[in-house]
Nucleic acid binder design. Structure first.
Lengths: 325, 325
DNA sequence: TTCAATATGTCAATCGTTTGACATAAAAAA
DNA sequence: TTTTTTATGTCAAACGATTGACATATTGAA
């Protein structure tokens, strides 16, 4: 690979001059500028970003740790994060923790070793203290870690409220909630909170099932939901904590010959792209994924530039009523 | 951030010694090793991977260019690629081209500038020559570029054949195929080829509609499929070139009150995780995504290490018969 | 005692780029 | 003509690590 020296030699100038045209600093005549460009062209020269990063002590990299990019919600989130990062010259290193503590820790170390400019954490299996030691520009999704670390979330409580209220208002008598893992102290737990409070408040019978830590074991989802619906055949409303879980519910209702929304109503959470393509199209609570992603990138950049930033970034949700309710 | 010098100073040794324990080279007594580890611990030292990369002229980075990670197929692919890359100490830079020629070109340049060790291309909007100039370890998904560049694909022709045959064998009289964009010279076009040949061979009436380049405009998909089914109400079988497209078909059939599989049968392609959760569960052609991802990573590594590798990596597909046929 | 193995140090170059300090020369402006 | 501006060059340090060549000292074994 050609270096700046090769370019200088070919253009008949010094590396200082080449660097000057490369970085638009100091005086440069059009003639030399052209010579230099031509030499770069001829050699197919690409400045070595690694060397640049080393020197300016900035990698223009953002680390993204999520459970897995193959989960539709995180896939969409990652897509938008990369989009907005790219707009301002940042690159994204992607890390799938699979909600494995060891992996998550490893990834944090790895990202620090690689001197990423900031870390966006969408996976949280570790204790608060472990994150506090990270001592790095961080943005968190759905988890409050400390007074300094900014976080992003949707209005989880509001979302839970919208979903639960809808089921009750539509006349459900016994409603179920399928929550994420409640041990991970996520703000998403507020969805469950809202569910519990509202169902109690309205005197509606309710059950909650909690998913295991390993969210990606398909068969487990299935048996869990199946058990739930078979044990409580009178459930006529389900609030699932994600659209993917809602898909499982729809599927199992279909297999159990429960008609949606006549026999049972279903509300999801996230509003992933495919939600509107389910049959029937899924009623769900929309998180503004794109705006949240944009915000995450901005929060990293602001920290890098030492600009002031908001610590709490809670985004409004929206009820997308479709045909499962 | 502490450097190797700080560690050396604190441990009371030279940087050479620290480097020796860091890289396990030469003679080191247990005592010094411990001192050094302790100093690293105390300073919370992380070797600067950027400096290391610069020196060894290897970034341990793989660039991944795909249309978008938010598409379920590519999300799953990306997830596995990152998984296998991580296993052998590689990191993944994701790039969503959105099938935009300019972006794709930019990303290739960017990845080269960042001296990634190899590029996995799952997005192909450029001409063959443009890739030939890349002159870099590359692996390609679903596209044959030159004699040197290895590619990975599923047995597209076989898959198209399985899908079409199934529809015909199930008694469909008029079948439709929704293809990807045929201008991009992808191997996926062989799915359409198979469809055309088999329907002709069996004397079954057939229509093909082709999606536009911008695969991510939702409304466009919808109107296209709607038009197809309204213009040809006698279509009783559809082979969609991806599961996501199949989801649209199912959805529209649902809206048009066409019963699946009684009135119309549907076959998808990919077997994304959600496919089995569709209602009805989608019959589809399974690509072995995980194996393909693993292969992609291996092909990069082999090129980096200058080991011999296969140029053609065509993976068998499998008919997953579920309830839409 | 002598030799080899073990353990550490010294020094400096290297990876590719940026940048500051300073020198010099030509062109343009006063 | 003199001064200022513009254009380029020279040189060397710095970013943070690795590594090779070589020196020196301490062990332990032969």
């Amino acid at each position: 690979m050609p270096t700046i020296k090769d370019v200088a030699r070919l253009a008949g100038v010094t590396v200082t001059t080449v660097s000057r045209v490369l970085n638009n600093r100091g005086y440069i005549s059009d003639a030399t500028r052209q010579k230099v460009y031509q030499a770069m062209e001829e050699l197919n020269y690409q400045p070595n970003e690694i060397a640049r990063s080393l020197h300016r002590r900035q990698s223009k990299l953002i680390g993204l740790i999520i459970p897995t990019v193959s989960h539709p919600f995180f896939g969409e989130l990652a897509g938008f994060i990369e989009y907005y990062a790219h707009l301002i010259g940042y690159k994204v290193l992607i890390c799938n923790s699979l909600l494995d503590r060891k992996k998550e820790k490893e990834y944090i170390e790895m990202l620090k070793s690689n001197r990423v400019d900031g870390i966006i954490m969408g996976s949280h299996t570790l204790e608060v203290e472990e994150y506090m030691n990270v001592n790095y520009p961080i943005v968190t999704f759905d988890r409050r870690i400390s007074e300094e670390i900014p976080y992003i979330s949707s209005d989880n409580y509001g979302g839970g409220k919208l979903a639960t209220n809808l089921l009750i208002q539509k006349g459900c008598k016994k409603i179920a909630h399928i929550s994420g893992n409640l041990q991970l102290q996520l703000l998403a737990n507020q969805r469950s909170q809202a569910f519990i409070e509202l169902s109690k408040e309205h005197g509606v019978e309710s059950v909650i099932v909690e998913t295991e830590l390993n969210v990606f074991d398909i068969t487990q989802y299935e048996t869990m939901i199946r058990n739930l619906l078979e044990k409580h055949p009178d459930i006529d409303g389900v609030f699932a904590s994600s659209d993917v879980m809602a898909a499982y519910v729809i599927q199992i209702c279909y297999l159990l010959n429960k008609r949606i929304p006549e026999h049972i109503k279903i509300v999801g959470y996230d509003d992933i792209k495919l939600a509107s393509l389910f049959v029937p199209p899924l009623t769900t609570i929309r998180q503004p994924i794109e705006e949240m992603a944009k915000c995450a990138v901005e929060l990293i950049v602001k920290q890098v530039n030492e600009e002031p930033f908001e610590r709490e970034n809670v985004f409004p949700v929206q009820l997308m009523e479709r045909l499962t309710t």
